[in-house]
């Protein structure tokens, strides 16, 4: 398993190849890529700055990945989350899960994405035509994460 928090972009194909190469036990690879979208109502988002809490981010992401590995039979798991300045269309987060079977890979990937949205300490600051605005947390994200609670 691996967790990375970085400013730089990532290469999805290269990461996928690295996780699945030389491992014939893997029958399923699920990839989630999150992009920066222009989601402010009525305004054009020019750029976004993603602030995070260095140290806690890595600690929480590692804990979430460990939980996924306990709950599903995964062969591999990778989470990359970017921070810093990003433009609409930029890749922001990558989650890859690999497993012998598709159910585990699908479910673990969805679990990781839902949890990192509600637990990983990141905050989005949008630059708009009229100034800057901190993006507010959404109840629907909490609801999505809650479905994984046991």
């Amino acid at each position: 398993m691996s967790v990375r928090v970085q400013r730089e972009d990532f290469d999805t194909a290269a990461e996928l190849e690295r996780l699945s190469r030389d491992n014939p036990r893997i029958g399923a690879v699920v990839t989630f890529t999150g992009l920066v979208r222009d989601f402010a109502p009525g305004e054009t988002v020019r750029r976004m700055t993603l602030e995070h809490y260095p140290g806690m981010t890595e600690k929480q992401l590692n804990a979430i990945v460990q939980e996924a590995e306990q709950r599903w039979p995964l062969d591999g798991c990778l989470v990359i989350h970017r921070h810093g300045q990003l433009d609409p269309g930029d890749r922001i987060v990558l989650v890859i899960t690999t497993s012998a079977h598709r159910e585990a890979a699908f479910e673990a990937c969805a679990f990781l994405v839902d949890w990192l949205k509600t637990k990983a300490p990141f905050w989005k600051l949008e630059e708009q035509g009229s100034g800057e605005r901190w993006v507010e947390a959404r109840d629907s994200d909490d609801a999505a994460a809650a479905r994984w609670q046991r």
Partner: peptide, 26 residues
């Protein structure tokens, strides 16, 4: 100390305590 805390959780002199709004990553 980089773990989410509830109101009743203890704090001590050498702790690192962070205050922040609800997170919006991903």
């Amino acid at each position: 100390n980089q773990d989410y805390a509830r109101p009743e959780d203890p704090v001590a002199a050498n702790d690192e305590v962070a205050l922040f709004p609800p997170v919006t990553g991903g």
